[in-house]
């Protein structure tokens, strides 16, 4: 029993996409450029060559935010989307009827359709692969060259993530929506 979350030291991110590939290989995610559980967002820099605004070109890793109050879970008619014992938002593919309500409800665009199973898929925090084997990192955290990601138990005051959130400023995405994400962006 834990309450898993992730802190992202996003200023380290170089947009290499190692995390995305590691996730796909670990979790057997379907191939295809649109089929990914995690991704890195960013913008082209504002301005015109040679005057470009560096700050506008930041890289922002994103994925399912594992909301404490998840709109996807609220709208799911078959309870395919559920919170597991570690507060990880999961999808039971046996129950998913691909109504796609959750995809529309999710403010973070975190869900996609797995064409092999014709069900909705998204980040699981490696719950049924790495965590199930007793490992303590997710595939994306483990592989990241610049160590952007720290995964851990928010309820454990001694965990690295709790320590980071105590000592570093951070924000959540679209905090005003009241979804209470468990992904935290460190500033």
């Amino acid at each position: 029993m834990a309450r898993y979350g992730m802190a992202l030291d996003y200023k380290n991110c170089i947009n290499c996409k190692a995390c995305e590939v590691a996730c796909k290989e670990e979790n057997g995610v379907e191939l295809g450029a649109e089929k990914h559980r995690i991704w890195v967002g960013g913008n082209n820099p504002d301005g015109q060559w040679p005057l470009l605004d560096i700050a506008s070109a930041a890289f922002m890793p994103s994925q399912c935010q594992h909301c404490e109050d998840a709109p996807c879970q609220e709208v799911c008619p078959t309870n395919a989307t559920y919170y597991d014992e570690n507060h990880v938002v999961r999808v039971d593919s046996d129950k998913c009827i691909l109504c796609s309500y959750c995809m529309n409800a999710c403010p973070y665009d975190a869900r996609y359709v797995d064409d092999r199973t014709m069900t909705v898929d998204k980040c699981t925090f490696c719950s049924d692969t790495r965590l199930a084997r007793g490992e303590t990192t997710t595939a994306c955290q483990n592989t990241c060259p610049t160590k952007v990601r720290t995964f851990g138990d928010l309820d454990d005051p001694n965990s690295e993530i709790s320590e980071l959130l105590r000592t570093r400023d951070h924000f959540s995405l679209k905090a005003h929506l009241g979804t209470n994400p468990k992904l935290f962006y460190l500033t």
Binding site: N15, G41, N43
Partner: peptide, 15 residues
């Protein structure tokens, strides 16, 4: 800060 949050891939010469 304004950051593109969509799952649409950020274009780095890749789409």
């Amino acid at each position: 800060m304004q950051v593109e949050m969509s799952r649409r891939r950020f274009l780095q010469g890749g789409v």
